[in-house]
Write a protein that binds this DNA or RNA. Structure first.
Lengths: 120, 120
DNA sequence: TTCATATACAACCATTTGGTTGTACTGTAG
DNA sequence: CTACAGTACAACCAAATGGTTGTATATGAA
């Protein structure tokens, strides 16, 4: 039984969902126009069930949303999560740049090895 | 024998590498300060070999680079790939926004209220 | 040289992933 | 009602993943 769920778990699911070419392609298609699962399935050289599973992975990551209409299930993109993913990476990247710069600053300034927590 | 390698493969590897909390943490650490594999290993509740494997995954995605110094192997971040990953997601996101907007345009034109350039 | 440290790597194992086929349920059309 | 299209889902399978332990190799220190 899953009691709670960390940001980390959600990040795992988003990146994992995007780590597959078929799923990235599905995302691109459904953002252009919402499509039924079977329409999507017709586009790929794999079974309907396989595509269904890919959609499920995207759905768990909240990158797409399914909406029933009659007997069809329409899949459409969820820009909010996409935005979240981008911001996530941007955050990482900024942190990276910041730290790299900070390290360069330290290196250029100092000869004496200060520990990180240190204050003067 | 691998003859060539698609952008798709590289994208797969980058997203897959980032789809694990331990690996994301390693990335954050090594960008702050380059660290030996054993120093990294000491930070996690898993074996040295396990951490070694995580580093290998990051290395295959070119998110980190290893550099030998004496008997140690220093791991440091590769900002270029991080930048590439961010741009990749940004690209997806922009495409997404563009298409979503285009779809809304079509729909709003379709359904109703007369836009400015309308003919009767 | 000898010894401890840092790494590499193989073998193994449980779980997950990505695919398949088959069966059953639901809604639409005749 | 019947028939079919669309979906859901279970069972199964091969390969990949994420972890382990054990062994081998290379480097630095004594």
């Amino acid at each position: 039984m899953v009691v709670y769920e960390t940001v980390s778990d959600e990040t795992d699911r988003i990146f994992h969902a995007l780590a597959d070419a078929t799923r990235r392609d599905i995302v691109m298609r459904v953002v252009q126009r919402e499509q039924s699962v079977s329409t999507l399935a017709a586009s790929y050289a794999m079974s309907f069930a396989a595509v269904q599973k890919h959609v499920a992975v995207l759905e768990r990551a909240h990158l797409v949303v399914k909406e029933r209409r009659g007997r069809e299930q329409l899949v459409h993109g969820n820009p909010e999560t996409m935005r979240k993913a981008t911001l996530l990476l941007q955050h990482y990247e900024e942190l990276w740049r910041y730290r790299a710069q900070r390290m360069r600053d330290i290196l250029s300034r100092d000869v004496s090895p200060k520990k990180e927590g240190e204050d003067s």
